[in-house]
Every structure is written in structure tokens, then in C-alpha cells.
Simulated assay, not measured.
Amino acid sequence: MTEDDDRALDWLEAELQDTLDEDIEIEFSEPMLSREIRKIYLREHPEMLGREVYFRNLLRLQAELIKVQDWVQHTGAKVCILMEGRDSAGKGGVIKRITQRLNPRVARVVALPAPSRREQSQWYFQRYVPHLPAGGEIVMFDRSWYNRAGVERVMGFASDDQVEQFFQDVPEFERMLVRSGVILLKYWFSITDQEQQLRFLMRIHDPMKQWKLSPMDLESRRRWEQYTKAKEEMFARTNIPEAPWYIVEGNDKKRERLNCIEHILSKIPYEEVPTEKVTLPERVYNPDYERQVLPDELYVPKVY
């Protein structure tokens, strides 16, 4: 083994350590809770998946997602994934782990704000259409057109006639997407009443997560049963063979993430794409070049 090979292995080991550090940082979600609430949460989750099993499988699945990304680019496939569920159900955490190692030019996340007055006057699906995937793209909707069947309906932002029109239109809209070649996957992240209660308490008592609690979130907690009825009708009327719903149990966040990614991989007919071996070109050296000394004020202070 040459000196260059030894140096490359040292760099690789350092990179792997950095990767692990990054994973640990992302997973550092232990809330700044009072001791009492922490005890309650741990008592309610005695069988959470261990970190070692979780990290090992997460890295394996993320390696497969890179193969999916390569296949999507190579074949021009169009992948659209809808992420729906109650507030605090873990949608954002799943999306973060899916996209963590992917190219943001290939895999992008769409999280639309409340519609403007102009958008409210448009055909309901119009604001979503520009964000649908083109060939060679993976698009994940962090909440989607199913807002009309959920929050808009429960909170009174849509009339009964608008909701009924949505239920009549959405199956054909999704069939059109599938006929056009879009791989459409619809996921509902499910947590129990008690679990949402605990997660809301965690956010209230964790200063690093309080921003996640909006007045709408708090109101959704009060209307749990209304959301349940709306969800049940949504499944009954929009679970079509061309685009079925898939429910991901989310009380254990680690299992939720792994199970969802595993399922996505099973639903995309990807194959490993042969790639050319990458070789690093020789650096060009100019003996007449002298690197300029930059002024100190251009540098960020070395606080650490």
C-alpha cells in the first residue's frame, strides 16, 4: 500500500467520523424537558428502537435512496410522494432523513404556505401543479392538496360544497398523474391521541421546539375527533387502486422513519445504474503563480 493510499484511508476514516457526528447531531432531539415530563415520556416508550440498530439501518437505506436518485436521473422517472398526518406526527423527520444525502437538484421538498387571495380564486389544484416532478425529479410534498380534506375542512376554511367537489375531483386528478407516468405515493403518518399530547407538551416545555407550535396546531389538538372523522372519510373516498394510501405508525419515530423509507424503496422499480469509475485529474501547477496574502478582516474570527 502506497503512502497516497494510506493518506486516502485516513481521509476516508475522518469523513466517516464526520458523517457519524452529523447523524448524531441531527438525531440530537432530546428535549429540554422537566424531569417529570421526561419520566412520563420514557415510561410511555419502553421499547423504542435502539440507536445502534437505527443508525445501521438508516445508513443502509440512505445508500439505497442514492441508487433510486441515480435511477430517476438516468431513466427520467417522475416520483411524487405525499406526506400527510396530524401535527407532530413526524412527517418532517422522515423527509429530513430521506433527503439528507440526496442531491437537492433531484430531490426537493414542497411545503406551500397558506394560499393567497388570488390562489383561493383559482382551480384548487392549480397551485400544486407547478411543483409536480418533471422527468428525473423526486418531489416530496410536506402536506399536499389533501389540506382541503383535513385542515381546511376541520377549521372551516373550505365550505361543504368545496370539500365535496374536492372528493369528486381528486381521484381523477391522481389518475391523470399516474397515466402521465408519475409514480405517486401517498403516506399518512399515524400517532395516537396520547402520543400527540406528549409531543405537544414536549414542544411547550422545550425552548428549542416552541416555534413548532402555532395557534393552528393548538386548535387542532382541541379538535382531535373532528380530524379523525375527516381522515376516515378521506381514506374512504380517495384510496383508489391507482394511488392507494399507506399508513405509517409513528409513535416510535425511529421505526417510523425506517419503515417508511423501506416501503418507498419497495414501491419504486429502481435498478442500480452502472457508473463510470471516477478518477481524480492531476492538479496543474504554475511555477510562476504566487498566492496573494488576503487582509485579516476578510476572515471569520476563530472563536472556536
Rank of each mutant, 00 (worst) to 15 (best):
M1C: 09
M1G: 15
E3F: 01
D5Y: 15
R7F: 10
R7C: 05
E13S: 06
L16D: 04
T19K: 11
E22D: 13
E25G: 09
I26W: 04
R35Y: 01
I37T: 13
K39A: 14
I40T: 11
L42Q: 11
E44A: 14
H45C: 07
F55P: 00
R60A: 14
L61A: 03
I66D: 00
Q69R: 05
D70M: 00
W71L: 03
V72C: 00
H74Y: 12
A77K: 10
K78I: 05
V79P: 02
C80G: 09
I81V: 15
L82D: 03
M83C: 14
E84S: 03
G85Q: 11
A89F: 08
A89L: 11
G90C: 06
G90D: 04
K91R: 04
K96V: 09
Q100I: 03
Q100W: 10
N103M: 12
P104C: 04
A107E: 04
A107V: 04
R108K: 07
V109R: 07
P115E: 02
R117Q: 14
Q120K: 15
Q126S: 02
P130Y: 00
L132G: 02
P133D: 12
P133F: 14
G135W: 00
G136P: 10
I138E: 02
V139P: 01
F141W: 06
R143H: 14
S144C: 12
R148D: 00
R148P: 06
G150N: 08
M155R: 08
S159E: 14
V163T: 08
V163C: 13
E164R: 12
Q165S: 07
F167S: 11
V170P: 11
P171A: 09
E172Q: 10
E174P: 09
L177W: 05
V178M: 07
V178G: 03
L184C: 06
L185D: 14
K186S: 01
S190M: 11
S190K: 15
I191Y: 08
R199A: 10
M202I: 15
H205M: 08
H205L: 13
P207G: 01
K212G: 14
K212S: 13
D217L: 13
L218T: 09
L218D: 06
L218R: 08
S220K: 02
R221H: 07
R222K: 15
W224V: 09
E225Q: 12
T228H: 13
A230M: 07
A230G: 07
E232Y: 02
M234Y: 09
I240F: 00
P244F: 05
I247C: 02
K253A: 10
K254H: 06
R257V: 08
N259W: 01
C260I: 01
C260Q: 01
E262V: 08
E262L: 11
E262F: 03
I264N: 11
K267H: 13
Y270S: 06
E271R: 12
E276Q: 07
E276W: 10
K277Q: 14
T279W: 11
P281F: 13
P281S: 10
Y285P: 00
Y285C: 01
Y289S: 03
D296L: 12
D296C: 02
D296R: 05
K302A: 14
Y304T: 14
